[in-house]
Write a protein that binds this DNA or RNA. Sequence first.
DNA 1: CGGACCAAATTGGTCTGACCAAATATAGGG
DNA 2: CCCTATATTTGGTCAGACCAATTTGGTCCG
Lengths: 241, 241
Amino acid sequence: MSSSNTISHEIAESLRDEILRQQYRSGERFPSERDLAARFDASRGAVREALSQLEQLGLIRTQPGGARVQSVDSASLAVLGPLMQLNDLPNPVLVDQFLETFGVLAALTAKNAINTANAEQLIQLKELVVQLTDESVDLEGMQPRWREFMKTLSEIADNLVVRLISNDLKAQFVDQMMRLGIRPDLKKSSIKRLLSSLRVSINKKDGELASEAMLEHFEELRAAMSEAIGLKASEIRKMVV
Amino acid sequence: MSSSNTISHEIAESLRDEILRQQYRSGERFPSERDLAARFDASRGAVREALSQLEQLGLIRTQPGGARVQSVDSASLAVLGPLMQLNDLPNPVLVDQFLETFGVLAALTAKNAINTANAEQLIQLKELVVQLTDESVDLEGMQPRWREFMKTLSEIADNLVVRLISNDLKAQFVDQMMRLGIRPDLKKSSIKRLLSSLRVSINKKDGELASEAMLEHFEELRAAMSEAIGLKASEIRKMVV
DNA sequence: CGGACCAAATTGGTCTGACCAAATATAGGG
DNA sequence: CCCTATATTTGGTCAGACCAATTTGGTCCG
């Protein structure tokens, strides 16, 4: 389950989750390195390495005299992944915000990619869209193709800022949803419409059209995802009862 | 000039910049901790703390046997600030991408803020826009008010994802531009138009309108900024000659 | 000559114990 | 009750040591 198998990473992970769970008030003093070393039965060096990671995440600020906890929403974007994996079910509000934000970035990427693509790249995109149209593959199996398509768009658009943002959100999100068995029920007609729009926009080299199609798609995805999470939540509630 | 005054931070900063300057090929072996300790005349512990920060930034990956450099565009968003401050003049392409990306996020924020704001918040926004309309203050002095306005929008929109993204870009950008004396020459009429649109959108509670105005504004800002950087570049070139 | 295999050197991961300087807490005096 | 001087806590750093995993280099065999 854990990321790296080193002690310092385990400590960092553990403390990170505690902070994200709001177990410390913002501004509160963080336990001393010596105390943490005792608690985790580790050396101070290992603890210090963990703390320097937390500091890089913007979760704590250290000073001679004591470290202090920072408010979560002044942290680095890199905490978003862990934040969504805190509980057995991701926070629906957060998921919705994620999709909304990711949607506008995806739309921007699509627009720029299609507007700046050369002839060869347009052919490549067209090919990828054709593969996405293949009806004999189920939603799960389609994921790698979608990722490939988005990756190609991103490479053509060549916007480092968007790419860096995406890195911090990366596969974590989709993977987690898959793992939890949360599958948004997108209507086939909806997907067809998106693919059709993409096809047209590529043919016409009309980035604006692709952007709008992408935005619309993410709107539908948000609704579907919200429903899917609600469904999963009620499932879990039943199991408990 | 440096951030923190601790040795480990200085080492991290130094190595970070070297990687961002592409002084190591991606995938290349990174110098050993013992070598780095000797080079910086520091203890291995200090070096290890620095390396764990670089790892958190996604710039290196460490393993028993040796650390390896990762490609910059697979790093964390937090490298963007340092990336723009590498040279005496920021990379214009990067600045443009930054503004483009930030623009769509700002537009999204404005849309959601105005659409979800309650009566009291609308009044507050209206008040802030009025303050921005004050003609007796120069562009420089207006900055804090703009920041206040954007911050309020962000709080009303209440999208943690966007906020986290903004954290990693934060004041760094504007501050650096100010420090370098790069001042985009936005026409007064352009700003007036933006403020007027914002006023109307607040009155009508029409988020979409605000979003479009914001997008348009950032388009103009991109053009102006590009020009300003070009101007500064030629200035510097003259000084050298 | 090339590939598989083994031993030695290198490297990261961790620990212990120690010292300094800055910040904090505490006790004392006004 | 407030302010100051002192003692304690805390982060920052260093040195030296050990282990386990990886690399490296050389050797042997086909």
